[in-house]
Design a protein around this nucleic acid. Structure first.
Lengths: 182, 182, 182, 182
DNA sequence: CCTTAAGCGAGACGGTACGTCCAGTCTTTGG
DNA sequence: CCAAAGACTGGACGTACCGTCTCGCTTAAGG
């Protein structure tokens, strides 16, 4: 009976959030500004998202969806390098918002949880699978450590800003991981 | 000629900030609360720090000053493990504020710079030295990547929260780094 | 379409302002205190009034609305005395806030205008009528001067505080006005 | 032994206050601004004046000093008219600050007292003398009422702003006072 | 076709913190 | 002891968002 939620509002909200981020960083993405920019009432935002952080999460986790394609050739090290290269490429496109999101998550446990559930954990699992194919004999713990090293290197560069995670890092990481787990 | 700034106020402000962080996280560290807790006028805070973020920066950067002791035994892999173990231990003691600091730095380019200068770069250089002693033949680029992998793993765990960087990670990292650069 | 402004908040704000004035004079009527006392957010005050002064204005102008009853007996001097007596009586009840209002108006041209329109001019017109009935031959200018003398005496006593405008002054003013315009 | 107070500072302070009033009204006359403009420390102001209001009083009551010259010819009504004319003229020159001062005095009992002592009372006494010479038989109370009417009319016009107290008012006031007390 | 329940844009609501500005006091160094 | 300078506590200012609540209006679906 009730009127269904407007799909137009859905996209308008997330678009507005992304546009505002582009213009003024995370600080410009206030719920009020998003609602105004989207031509939507504040309540329409809060009907969809619990709070500001949920909006932020939705806006950029949506963007980051579906970017995890697992190559499955005969050469596991090539597969690994390719996977990381693609990942870093996709990341690079959204480096700024993801960096901000990770930072924001440090202040908001709930957002941190969401980030892990929607983003981190899946990627860790996928990389772990790839590594196990690469080195079937490696211990669970070593695989976990290598996963943290690979993603850690990427985030570390993003956060510290001394270098960019790109194809070169992907190649090197694949090589070093192979050697480490051999 | 004018009255000099009160050193008592200096320490009272930073102490108050740290205590409030301990009690309620970053959100509890408002300028107003800091001033009240420190028994100081708000203006006295704003005379020292441009804004809330500057207060946060000062409070945690002061805490995070400290020695990086480099072990130099005959066994480079042991040295590496020991170095990382100590580092992770020292970090762990201030994990929460440092996590917040790194997050805050993502919103404050100036703080990010300070953080690198006072923290990150020194530790990266030290680790790079250790790695070069461990694997004299390794390329500069590989060493850099391994440094990012090691510190990256630590920060990544801190930020994502799925695991703690502790002695076990230190050992494993040392082992994997050895293997990777061999 | 939006939710209409709360009438309860309207009255709560002005009541709070008046009560605070009663307790601590004009100095006690801060926007923050008003909001707190009224059980209202600061923004709710600022949504209605441009600033603190506008709140003060509204609070006392509302109080000061009231009838100017013109007695019309066969004895114009008695009528005059009665009119002034009533006026002074009504004034006396709100002497403090009105005194403050007149003072505040000296800093706020807009309020000064409002005060004249809602207050001063009507009373001046009424008194001028009464005086013309009392002394049909008096010049317009003399009548105007006497009006200023009568109200002036009242305000002067209020502002300077050396004496109170009461029935005695009303009688004397009526007598002197009669003599002056004869 | 003690260094004497600087006369230069004395005048610099009051000049600064008057200049600031000219530029931005009473609101611009803060103690800090006065001190800065006068090239003087805040304490030097507070050494001379109890508080901001005392500075204001000093700045404009000094200006208004010595303006009361009592004419003593054979024609008391002419004397009265002349006295009022001069008074209004002197007033007119400082109408704005005196208006502000009277307004401010409504919020600051101490200032109100000062204003009376240094200004109002002397003028009232002088006018009462003149009136007694004009009408030796008039009752004390009637004289007092006429004094309030005359000064009241002046202040009333100043405060309400519907007309200016000038020579015309002075003449009319003299005439009406004569008639009233006859 | 007509209820009816929920969605909608708009923006008011109680709160809380921000960063600014003065008041009036205190504390330096230097006449 | 006076002076200039400016730091000190204290507290109000007016602004900006947060997340909630409430208007009048619109839009399905089920009776």
């Amino acid at each position: 009976m009730p009127r269904p939620r407007s799909a137009a509002a859905d996209t308008a909200i997330l678009d507005a959030a992304r546009r505002l981020f582009g213009e003024g960083g995370l600080g410009a993405v206030t719920v009020e500004a998003v609602a105004r920019r989207a031509g939507v009432g504040k309540q329409t935002v809060y009907r969809r998202y619990a709070d500001r952080n949920a909006v932020l999460a939705a806006a950029w986790l949506e963007v980051a969806e579906g970017e995890v394609v697992v190559p499955e050739s005969a050469d596991p090290e090539r597969d690994l390098a390719l996977f990381l290269k693609r990942l870093f490429g996709a990341f690079g496109a959204n480096a700024e918002p993801l960096r901000s999101l990770m930072a924001q998550a440090q202040f908001e446990p709930e957002l941190r949880q969401t980030l892990r559930a929607a983003f981190i954990d899946r990627r860790r699992a996928t990389l772990a699978d790839l590594l196990r194919r690469l080195a079937p004999g490696a211990s669970q713990a070593d695989v976990g450590a290598v996963v943290d090293m690979a993603f850690g290197a990427m985030w570390y560069r993003l956060l510290v800003g001394h270098d960019t995670p790109g194809p070169a890092l992907a190649r090197r990481l694949a090589k070093l991981a192979s050697a480490a787990l051999a």
